[in-house]
Design a binder for these strands. Sequence first.
DNA 1: AGTATTTGTAACTATATTGGTTACATGTAA
DNA 2: TTACATGTAACCAATATAGTTACAAATACT
Lengths: 143, 143
Amino acid sequence: MAISTRFSVGIHILSLIATDEKMTSDLIAGSVNTNPVVIRKIMSMLKKADLIEVRPGVAGARLARPLSRITLLDVYHAVAVVPDKELFGVHAAPNPDCPVGRNIQSTVTPIFELAQSALEKVLAHVTLDDIVSEIEQKEASSS
Amino acid sequence: MAISTRFSVGIHILSLIATDEKMTSDLIAGSVNTNPVVIRKIMSMLKKADLIEVRPGVAGARLARPLSRITLLDVYHAVAVVPDKELFGVHAAPNPDCPVGRNIQSTVTPIFELAQSALEKVLAHVTLDDIVSEIEQKEASSS
DNA sequence: AGTATTTGTAACTATATTGGTTACATGTAA
DNA sequence: TTACATGTAACCAATATAGTTACAAATACT
């Protein structure tokens, strides 16, 4: 299964907030093309991860830190698209009476961790600033 | 969501076949600790991907190529844990009337592809031979 | 003060995937 | 021909996703 679109939606939301702090969940939902509650739920995750500041009743949101200090990895973790650091599932209880069964987990897990951290490293090296700049650039060159 | 355990089970299955070609789905299920049908379904995928040779009615299976020429990436693709090359889901129809909406997909997709290929590169560089050798080493040193 | 607007959740839905299970047809070999 | 294996179909429970309705609580504006 693919990693949830919550991740790309999260990036979308933050990009919008970056360009306009008066973005309501309704407006954001219009840009993402989904339901406002979906947006609010994701924003709630972004808030819990201290990426944005939102207050009940008051329209819009603010980034909790500068764009250049929010990485895609931060967003990735914030929207919890992957169960606490375990991208790869490993079958739980292989037979300890079998040479393969009793060693497969400890053999495979470090490789999975390598692969996972290779992926996360890429995400960690891209900031929201990169995203927003790229979007602005595309807008400028298409005018 | 985590990547399906079909992947780690697939590696488990192939490791068993590598050490004993007379492994039936029942025996393998005993080592993996699951139902034989689960094993047969995964073996069916491994067969379709030309990683193993199995014949209905005849017990066991053979590797279709040497251990050293089967990578974890081959297995990963074979068991289809990820929808055809798209590890990251991207929300489908953002609003084209919004600067962010109309550019988010094309901005984010290449980054996702980078991250995905970083992950796959790690998997491509590990062969089943590495896995089996590691297991044998652990067995030898624990005796 | 009171109304309108917004966030924050709870609760529910439809859909899909996972992992497991039973049942059985088909193929092979002793 | 008996026994055993593979190959699938069909089904199940549990879970995740994405969307939706409904509504409480907080805030802002007139």
